[in-house]
Design a protein around this nucleic acid. Structure first.
Length: 466
RNA sequence: UCCUCAGUAGCUCAGUUGGUCAGAGCACCUGACUGUUAAUCAGGGGGUCCUAGGUUCAAGUCCUAGCUGGGGAGCCA
């Protein structure tokens, strides 16, 4: 019988009814079962959550070959697609030839057919993509990245590549990683003994970006609406299931958007992404629901079907004060809301995503547009059940004098911000934007609870392996 | 960074008051079984009890410090 030369992905076969036809598949062995007459090989090639059941008549194959077909091994299989006699799958491949690409010594291959803890899998991040769980997560991650580009493209936004390396220290979003080519054991010194950054690569101190927003605003004030989608770096010593040192962030920035438009966009955007996941990642979501989170798709549908509650910080504080709930940190107007307060509003009071707006200006960034009350700014935080703040954004202050006054009040280095202030000096306009933490979105969509499990190779304090 | 819990076989864990305490299940190996579904059944091999000190006649067990991981908090997306 003629052997097919073209490889077929398993995702194309598991729902196929091309019975009697020959196919060539290539993938990694998940498990092998059977007896001395017949072997069942569960093969996965990453194209979908499902394994293809390969059936091998033991007598028809070299004994040594089959002995090396173990969990983790990589093989190519030619065979005939037939309806499965067994219960777990609708099709199976009757193998006519098997080629062993790479063995995986069962004594030392870390992955077993048994389930593994997520903590253990983090220690073998180079191999965990081969598990069903991480296959599902990484496919969903891809789908969400694609959907993000699709949404913005379809809505007339332009993808702007803001810099990864920045020499401005005023992004105001936490500690930064320094970028230098100086010899750290013997850096050049100035006459006064300080490190002489004039001799550094960029001639001044440089860092990895903590946000593309400031440059994003420059793009919005020219192209009308832009978004960024790239890696972001925070050198904070944060050790939580919701923080990474390196993560991906989406930051749309829109000219002529006021805060209400900003909220409309954020809600529509998030709902589009969730709907996209439900439509395009159904099998992977079903797996995660079965294994980790029985309410996963219910929760996704709930967010899709309900309008986000919108209320001001002041109203939120009043609800918390009236609630009678006991909080570790007592609520008062002017304080930043603690996790417990946000959770109360989202999970106890409204039981729905909440957009909080108009925060006290003292607890928000300098660039946010000040309200006429003199006390609050047009900030907006989108709070989700289980994961808290998923989006932070605001209308930006477009008035040069007001913005400059705020820069002075906060003692920010105005000379480094000249280019940012120029947008207010020349053709200023109302504009808004927000930042969406990509991995936080993925936490919500996948139902995972630790952010280290929704990025292929997590970077956290004391961990940059792989 | 703070609080808290944990670290024993490849994995998940048990190990009582400090005294036969080196254990189980799974994985792996060998054998059995003509269609399995985390296959099943029988047998076998497998240990720096996280590290360094300390207390004690005696430490997996108690004390101190450190390292690593989980959970909570802060910072934030």
């Amino acid at each position: 019988m003629e052997q097919p030369q073209i490889r077929t992905k398993i995702s194309e076969l598991v729902y196929s009814d091309a019975f009697g036809q020959n196919f060539l598949v290539k993938g990694w062995v998940r498990t092998k079962r059977g007896n001395k007459h017949v072997a069942f090989i569960a093969l996965n090639d990453g194209s979908c959550i499902h394994n293809l059941q390969v059936v091998a008549d033991v007598a028809a194959f070299d004994e040594e070959l089959l002995r090396n077909v173990t969990t983790g091994a990589c093989v190519a299989v030619c065979g005939k697609l037939v309806p499965s006699q067994g219960q777990g799958q609708s099709v199976e491949l009757q193998a006519t030839s098997i080629y062993l690409y790479g063995k995986a010594d069962p004594d030392v291959y870390p992955l077993q057919k048994k389930g593994h803890s997520l903590e253990f899998l983090r220690e073998i991040a180079h191999l965990r993509p081969r598990t069903q769980t991480f296959g599902a997560i990484l496919r969903i991650r891809h789908a969400m990245a694609f959907a993000i580009h699709k949404y913005f493209n379809d809505h007339g936004f332009f993808y702007l590549h803001t810099p990864i390396i920045t020499a401005s220290d005023c992004e105001g979003a936490g500690a930064m990683f320094q970028v230098t080519t100086l010899n750290l054991s013997e850096p050049p010194r100035t006459e006064s003994g300080e490190v002489d950054y004039a001799q550094d690569f960029f001639g001044k101190p440089a860092n990895l970006t903590v946000s593309g927003q400031l440059e994003g605003e420059l793009g919005a004030m020219a192209l009308g609406a832009i978004y960024t989608f790239g890696p972001t770096f925070r050198a904070e010593n944060s050790n939580t299931p919701r923080h990474l040192s390196e993560f991906w962030m989406i930051e749309p920035e829109m000219a002529f958007y006021e805060i209400q438009d900003n909220m409309d966009l954020a809600e529509d955007f998030l709902k589009f992404l969730i709907a996209y996941a439900l439509e395009h990642c159904a099998d992977d979501l079903a797996f995660l629901e079965k294994m980790y989170d029985a309410e996963l798709t219910d929760r996704l549908r709930f967010v899709l079907d309900n309008r986000f509650v919108r209320l001001s910080y002041t109203e939120g504080v009043e609800i918390l004060l009236r609630s009678g709930a006991k909080f570790e940190f007592p609520v008062s107007w002017g304080m930043d809301l603690q996790s417990e307060h946000e959770r109360y509003l989202v999970e106890q009071h409204f039981r729905c995503p909440v957009i909080l707006t108009d925060y006290p200006k003292e607890i928000k960034a300098f660039y946010m547009k000040q309200n006429t009350d003199g006390k609050t700014v047009r900030a907006m935080d989108v709070l989700f059940p289980k994961i808290g703040e998923i989006i932070g954004g605001s209308q930006r202050e477009e008035d040069l004098e007001v913005l400059q006054r705020r820069v002075e009040e906060l003692d920010l280095p105005q000379k480094d911000l000249w280019w940012y202030l120029d947008t207010r000096r020349f053709g200023s306009a109302p504009h808004s934007g927000f930042g969406l933490g990509f991995e936080r979105l993925l936490l919500f969509v996948t139902g995972m609870v630790n952010i280290r499990d929704v990025i292929p190779f997590p970077r956290t304090p004391k961990n940059a392996d792989f």
